[in-house]
Design a binder for these strands. Sequence first.
DNA 1: GAGCACTGC
Length: 690
Amino acid sequence: MSSLQFWKPGTVGPGSTLDRATETEGNVLSSAPLTSSVSIQVARERLPIFKHRQKLLYCVETYGVTIVVGQTGCGKTTQLPQYLYEAGWASDGNIIACTQPRRVAATSVAGRVATEVGTILGDEARILNVIKVGYTIRFEDVSDKERTRILYLTDGMLFRETLIDPLLSRYSVIMIDEAHERSIYTDLLLGLLKKIRRKRPSLRIVVSSATLDASYFLDYFSAGNPEGEATIISLEGRMYPVEVAYLQEPTADYVRKAAETVWNIHLHQASGDILVFLTGREEIDRCLEELSEYLPTLPRNAPRLKLLALHAGLTTEEQLAVFEPAERGTRKVIISTNIAEASVTIDGVKFVVDCGFVKIRIYNPTSTLSSLATVPVSLASSIQRAGRAGRTSSGICYRLYPESALASLPITTPPEITRVDLTTPILQLKSLGIDDLMKFEWVSSPPAETVLRALENLVASGMVGEDGRLTATGEKVAECPVEVNIARMLFMSKEYKCGEEMLTIAAMTTVQDVFIIPEGAAGALAELERRKFTAEEGDHLTLLNAYNAFTRYGRSSSWCKAHALSFRAMSRAVSIRAQLKKYMQRFDLPLESCQGDAKRLRQCLVSGYWRNGAKWVADGTYRSVRGNVVLYVHPNSVLFTRKPRSGWVIFHEMEETKKTQIRILTEIEPDWLLEYGHTFRDKHTGVAIS
DNA sequence: GAGCACTGC
């Protein structure tokens, strides 16, 4: 094979978006001894952010909104809240909050900062009366109402808090970290924070973002506000330079090209692990196959190659394998989805191979269909991906497209809020008293049709009245951490006397990948195990059976393994169920059991899924009641191979892949659909809704 | 007759 057919136009480095590193990332602080405050002090001063300390504090003091452009490794997430604390922003019972889009980030950063300030997290700290740093994520609140001064939490949790305290009055400063990722909760929070600041100007906001988005946030917070409301401050990072190489010609098959590139790197470049970005599991598997075909041609004296896949569908153990250092004389190759772009960080990577594409969710409000589309990555993403090669030393990023294609890349990925169903978020905004959605200051406006569709959905399900205001049920459902149709079933379970079972079904439909069906012979065996739970009525009751069996047999991981169930998913279902149970109790919904009366259960399901009806047709596909769309049953369904006796089903969700598929089906009688399709009478207002 | 980017409450 020829040497690399890449053109190397230069380096992503100083002056660009990845700055030259001054020292190794991360271990400076974590290696500091717990008890020695002196060494911690020294270490903190070595962080690039330190010399901007006074300037940062001045900006927060002077400006309502400070946009911090901080590159990976500058220490903003760990240091800025501490500077603010030391400057007195947490006095008088005030709290400094820092939001993260992911749970792991919130917990791990809180742990690190607790070490730095000389305390610890959790119960031990509570006894010692030294709680200063805490974190809050769903199912886990490691904070103290009185004593926590610096609180790390997921953006979703802070958004939820606005439903209880709309002015977020316990916080003096709120830092929205990783804002450039534009998670839906980040966007909603930023919109609310701009509003909150008008009523509570003393609140300070810090938005931390990557370079390419900073001026967008500045414009957003400056619009309609007095001069000097917002400012930008830029911090250099601690990245090593990454050289970028492009293909000379576009490739028709980037998976094959990726394999070829990996092979070339291995034969011609010095040691260092390789990280490959592809779009999905199928591509990853194919790339692995191509590479294993090369392996026998490896010269006897050449270093070995260790091939690893990384995607969210793997078990935790399988995912952990990518962090294990390879044996001496072996190079690791990690072939990954976008999970390695921001969620998972692997040190030791010196080479990145970027296919230039990503899979993103797209929502079509007209058809209410969600789909996964493979689209070119944004410029911001390609920079982030390249940066993965420069974490521990300088590196090279091979982009599998010509440099000329750079110009056609979008600057950033469209924010999530423009690409998803907004039924639940809009219900929540209404619950916050934001009734005129046209006047809400979105950071990026969602498509008008998506907003209209969400409103229509809310009216049809009795959450919003004809006057555009929340109904009594709507007020309650807005608080529930589940989709609107699921919440509606929980409320209707009172009529059908099946609260106990609906609670389980609600929890089980929320977790994904309950059944583990591996490839090949093991898969056939797993399939047999799953049949033990199968209910002929369909998937909802099958999920119920699986959950009940799980609790009956002691909730053990070995039991799950023996029955082809995911222990992680099942445990999560237990937590979600417990959380939803509290809401049921608060709303006075009885936890009765239907005592095995599956008919009542199925009727209750229709009260939530009444818009998701479908009729079986002779070729084994279904037609949707709304829109007469051709629907294919997902292969994981127990109804995949079987015609429902009545010929009718409701389904949990539909998604467009190569075909339009429906997942989690239950057989129903068609006249049950009519009952809900025509009118739903809101129990509290008595208003009939068509 | 065949499949699933990533998060979050």
